[in-house]
Design a binder for these strands. Structure first.
Lengths: 251, 251
DNA sequence: CGTTAACTTGATAGCATTCAACTAGCGTGG
DNA sequence: CCACGCTAGTTGAATGCTATCAAGTTAACG
């Protein structure tokens, strides 16, 4: 049987969460993914929408956000290939936030009316999806801590740590770097800081020899130092196979 | 059949999330709840624990929190009767945060090995629980916005709005007030502020005639004004029956 | 190349923290 | 019954982290 090529990222992601049987892998590959190219900075779903489908990110980067009445924006999470950022729409009718692309992205849409019976027919996959949304929530918790109690310096460092580990977990990061088409303004909206201060703080992190972030490429130059600066512990990501302690800088 | 008295709060809570059949209500009432009294300020679960049971709050108030290396604390959520704050432990082995009582509380513990087959036998209840954890996540998202992008004044107002609506939804608040054994230091840890500034800001809210908070009792004196100050919209709470627009001050 | 978005840097302002002292409430025990 | 001690709450003054404002500079892209 030819596996559905679009299922690759999702399978890889799920394997970081649970262990799948071959039958489950086949079942997932049998889902009808309708792929679409989306340009940078486009909304996939808007706040107050009532989606009838879920978005699976096949390639590229997306983020969830909320806008305030006075125009301020808060980014709530970043998402990468294999993520289904609006999986909750399966059980929560109204979107309480928006979903947009960071750079250009490839996305597959899966209708709710297909996903719902599918999950009822595959309780273990259903549990895996539930577990995924629980990890989602765990990351939100860490973000509350990040924005609530950490200094700008630690806060940014922590965001960078998290993204590095998450991208490594699904094989999207090299040993000490990853592609990340994020702007400083978006980093500001993710950390609750101003873009200007993000700039200054990134300079600081760079001057301390911890990272290098330019031209959509993030280089981790001192992984241990970055984690220390952040107070980062990967526990909250609940990965099946935790990242090696330091081997990441090997090559 | 005599309904399990301990199931009351849980049933009431679930009815704010989904509509239950009588059979489902009976099934839930048939669960073996082992009730226990817990004193104020006690940990129910600690970070890094690997619980083998879930806590159902029967009475009283609890909160989730994380501690940082430098001793700072961030409170992640407040919980009331009917909530199962550590439901995620069913699918996430390790606790990434702690759970403690605010005032004295009555709690029922339900072993995972009972809950797991129970949910597999009752897919609709399972979905309701999933939905509950998704609403949990929606509230975390709003908290990220709250600490990330709102002023101290709006931030506190928003927290108060949220708790008022949530307590009203399960019948634990009067028309314009509710019992809430929270200290200003805990409010500070929930909003990412200092206790001193919480004090000043509460005074401001009081002086503006919006609220009155003293001796563990929160009085909403100007519900519309409080919502305006907070920029509060209840959408993210995903309630089955939204709160009336203003009728709350009726009596 | 020209145009625009993204990034950088300096100066100033402000909200919230910290430090410090003091007051009020409340339970305990002499 | 009031003294004591502790926790929670209150208020003032000074500091500081981060935002805002304002000008540049660099990079991206057609």
């Amino acid at each position: 049987m030819i596996a559905n090529a679009h299922a690759g990222p999702l399978l890889r992601k799920l394997e970081t969460i649970v262990t799948l049987t071959q039958g489950e892998r086949d079942a997932i590959a049998g889902l009808p993914f309708m792929a679409r190219e989306i340009k940078a900075g486009q909304d996939l779903v808007r706040e107050h929408d009532r989606p009838s489908q879920c978005c699976l990110i096949l390639e590229g980067h997306t983020f969830r956000y909320k806008l305030l009445a006075d125009g301020k924006r808060q980014i709530l999470s970043f998402h990468i290939a294999g993520d289904i950022p609006d999986l909750q729409s399966l059980h929560l009718r109204i979107m309480d936030h928006g979903l947009a692309t960071l750079g250009a992205a490839r996305v597959a849409f899966i209708p709710h009316e297909i996903l719902r019976p599918f999950l009822h027919a595959h309780p273990r996959i259903s549990d895996a999806f539930w577990r995924d949304t629980l990890i989602d929530a765990a990351i939100f918790r860490e973000w509350v801590v990040n924005v609530g109690r950490r200094s700008a310096y630690s806060r940014l460092a922590h965001l960078l740590c998290e993204n590095f580990v998450r991208m490594r977990a699904v094989g999207l990061a090299g040993p000490g770097s990853f592609e990340w088409p994020v702007t400083q303004e978006q980093l500001a909206d993710a950390t609750g800081l101003s873009a200007v201060h993000v700039n200054r703080t990134l300079t600081e992190l760079r001057d301390h020899g911890l990272i290098d972030l330019a031209r959509h490429k993030m280089v981790v130059k001192d992984w241990q130092g970055l984690q220390d600066a952040a107070g980062f512990e990967h526990t909250y990501l609940h990965l099946q196979t935790p990242p090696e302690e330091n081997g990441t800088m090997a090559s």
